[in-house]
């Protein structure tokens, strides 16, 4: 993660400034003699420093072995289609989903009360599962408070984890859509915590950290044990995608003043 400190002004030592300028001029194609001639007063001090800098530039770069370079390229190209399925931050999409959820809300409340209760424990391969998901969307649409909405979305991410786990345990099926969704929701909520960093949300961030750990443990298991290569790749890519969650959540907690 890039960190910028735009308002901090560090005083620069004049020799350091001139040395940096000289090195950049030489990198751009000027000769060392031409460059040093611009600063006759600093010549004695500059020359040895420039010589060391140019020596470092000449000998430091190390080329990778061509076979390694080729093998890695091949491997990465194979992973691109898998990576392209990883979740993108998409708040707009969530808003659109909420709008459609609000429309179905009335229907759900008026007509399907009994079925909703039955559907609560259903798995993705059950006919009642779409009702469970529509109920989740409606619940979210009914929750205006921001902190509660984040909490609710973590509930949903947790449910996807439980469902994916249950499908694996009962049927040996890797539910790729569920894995992508649980990671996508958790990432989106983490991004929102990063934006708001409200101390009142610290409990949610702590829950997200614990949930993230459980998700990653399941993904690690799938990256090793899933029967298909494609599923193992997906789990591995999701592990890479989520690698910085814990440190980001810790940073949010620190900003909230809640430590770890």
């Amino acid at each position: 993660m890039l960190r910028w400190k735009p308002f901090r002004r560090d005083p620069v030592d004049p020799v350091a400034h001139v040395l940096a300028e000289c090195l950049e001029r030489i990198e751009a194609g000027e000769s060392p003699d031409e460059v040093v001639a611009r600063y006759p007063d600093l010549r004695q001090e500059l020359e040895p420093l420039l010589a060391t800098g140019l020596h470092a530039r000449a000998v430091a770069p190390e080329q990778p072995d061509p076979d390694f370079r080729r093998r890695l390229r091949y491997r990465l190209e194979g992973a691109v289609p898998v990576a392209a399925r990883l979740p993108r931050p998409a708040f707009g999409l969530w808003r659109a989903r909420l709008a459609s959820a609000a429309v179905t809300l009335l229907f759900l409340l008026l007509v399907a009360g009994g079925a909703i209760r039955v559907s609560a424990g259903s798995l993705p391969d059950s006919p009642l599962y779409p009702l469970k998901r529509a109920t989740e969307d409606a619940h979210l649409a009914l929750t205006p408070d921001l902190a509660r909405r984040f909490w609710l979305r973590l509930d949903f991410a947790e449910r996807r984890l439980v469902e994916a786990h249950a499908l694996w345990a009962r049927k040996g099926v890797v539910w790729e859509g569920g894995l992508l969704e649980m990671v996508g929701i958790t990432e989106a909520v983490l991004e929102e915590y990063e934006v708001f960093a409200d101390p009142g949300m610290a409990e949610g961030v702590r829950r997200l950290r614990a949930l993230g750990e459980r998700q990653r443990a399941f993904l690690e298991f799938l990256a090793r044990e899933a029967p298909s290569r494609r599923a193992r790749w997906l789990a591995a890519m999701l592990l890479h995608y989520t690698a910085d969650w814990d440190s980001r959540a810790k940073a949010v907690l620190e900003r909230m003043g809640s430590g770890r």
Binding site: L2, R3, W4, K5, R8, R9, D10, P11, V12, D13, V15, A16, H17, L19, A20, L23, E24, E27, L49, G53, A56, R57, A60, P61, E62
Partner: peptide, 28 residues
């Protein structure tokens, strides 16, 4: 700066420091 061949500005971005701080560090 010397193995990866970044400019001062790019080095400052990677290190999360100001360009002046990187110039001072480079000098030292």
């Amino acid at each position: 700066r010397f193995a990866a061949g970044l400019s001062i500005a790019e080095t400052a971005r990677v290190m999360g420091r100001s360009e002046n701080a990187v110039k001072n560090l480079q000098h030292k």
